[in-house]
Design a protein around this nucleic acid. Structure first.
Length: 384
DNA sequence: TCTGGGGTCCTAGGACCC
DNA sequence: TCTGGGGTCCTAGGACCC
């Protein structure tokens, strides 16, 4: 691989959900806006820049957010809307490179290697992209440009909002050296603590550490990964294939439930949503996973199993999911119920003919229901 | 303050096979 | 009598990201 030759951009929309709400609703402009679940157990999804000085940030419990910023306007997420805008943003990015890897609704990597003659140097690329996004959506984005994904992602965060950061070529390692270890992509609270106990505080500290020593303390593969990143090396390609590995649906209940009779109908509903998601994306699942979170200790438990045949109908998913429920404690108070499909494959591919027929029987019926929903709307499901 | 919902990736242990 | 070694698959849990 021709290391050092790549140009990778990371595009990150600024306070995406909140910015969309402010764009769509003028009375929200200039005010602290918190997008998030309004329920008892809701958390902040996105806080507008007006709310952030109060200490409000993503993943914070809504109750705490409102204690910090009592005047904030809480908006219930409109995921369908955010998805629409996201598609516009991604379509805009497609005009700049054939290699676009969305990471979520609001951020993506672009491999711009070899595009300098078309768009100029990285600064010009970043400016052109930001201009195109504003023109198309009225929203701002921050962009990082560098020789690899890790550096580009780190950079896009350094001049937010509405900013550009270019990591200078050939001086990458010294550029990131003063930053705290927590800035390494993949180092969260737990790992940060472990690393701090080793006496390493900055990325430069990790980069200068002796690799053998680091291996013995953090495990070989994690140590090697961190050490490479700290030395500004990251060979991972921009992957535009878009293949998904799993598809799930889960819900945190307003009030705890217990007992099979209470859990099963909720699980059925999650299976229905997963099955519909599979059909919409033309996928079939090879297995299903059940997820419960207990109130006591916030403990998460999962059970998974393969299906007899790949399926995209809720009955197949739910039948197996209900069996898995038998291997879980249903007597303790439960706060979350979820289902997920895994071992995904393109619908119609790789199925034995006998199985294919059986697998699609329920699928066909549910597909007909999908069409009716599409034509007349589905009051029940679009309510949440 | 009391912790969402959507994902990805990694690890460790057990079953199983040769 | 006192139990190999290696490879692969599967499952459950956990860290992490937005």
């Amino acid at each position: 691989m021709a290391a050092g030759e790549r140009i990778v951009l990371h595009v990150d929309m600024d306070a995406f959900y909140a910015a969309i709400e402010q764009r769509d609703e003028p009375r929200l402009r200039g005010k602290p806006v918190i997008v998030g679940g309004p329920s008892r157990r809701g958390v902040v999804s996105t806080a507008s820049y007006e709310a952030r000085p109060f200490g409000v940030h993503s993943a914070m419990p809504m109750s705490r957010a409102l204690a910090l910023c009592p005047n904030a306007i809480v908006v219930t997420p409109r995921m369908g809307r955010y998805l629409e805008v996201s598609e516009q943003v991604m379509a805009t990015l497609d005009d700049f490179s054939p290699l676009v890897e969305p990471l979520s609704l609001d951020e993506a990597f672009l491999d711009m290697t070899g595009s300098e003659r078309l768009f100029g140097p990285p600064e010009a690329m970043a400016d052109a992209i930001r201009k195109a996004i504003v023109a198309r959506t009225g929203l701002t984005a921050s962009v990082g440009a560098a020789a690899n994904k890790f550096l580009a992602k780190l950079a896009s965060d350094l001049n937010k909002p509405d900013g550009v950061t270019i990591v200078p070529r050939g001086r990458e390692a010294e550029f990131i050296a003063p930053l705290p270890v927590r800035r390494l992509w993949g180092v969260g609270p737990k790992s940060a603590e472990r690393i701090a106990k080793l006496g390493l505080r900055t990325i430069g500290d990790v980069a200068r550490a002796e690799l053998g020593w680091l291996r013995r303390r953090l495990g070989a593969s994690y140590a090697e990964h961190l050490w490479a990143l700290a030395n500004a090396r990251d060979d991972r390609p921009v992957d535009a294939s878009g293949e998904r590995k799993s598809l799930g649906s889960e819900t945190t209940l307003e009030w705890d439930v217990r007992g099979r009779n209470a859990v099963e109908p909720i699980l059925r509903r999650q299976c229905e949503r997963v099955a519909r998601g599979l059909r919409e994306t033309r996928l079939v699942a090879g297995g299903v996973r059940v997820k419960l979170r207990y109130s006591r200790g916030f403990v998460l438990a999962t059970r998974q199993a393969k299906l007899d045949a790949p399926a995209d109908d809720s009955r197949s998913l739910f039948t197996r999911a209900a069996e898995l429920l038998e291997r879980l404690d249903l007597d303790a108070p439960i706060r979350l119920v979820g289902a997920a499909a895994f071992d995904l494959a393109a619908a119609g591919a790789g199925q034995a003919p006998l199985f294919a027929e059986r697998a699609t029987k329920d699928g066909n019926r549910e597909r007909a229901m999908d069409e009716i929903r599409a034509r007349f709307g589905d009051k029940i499901d679009y309510a949440d």
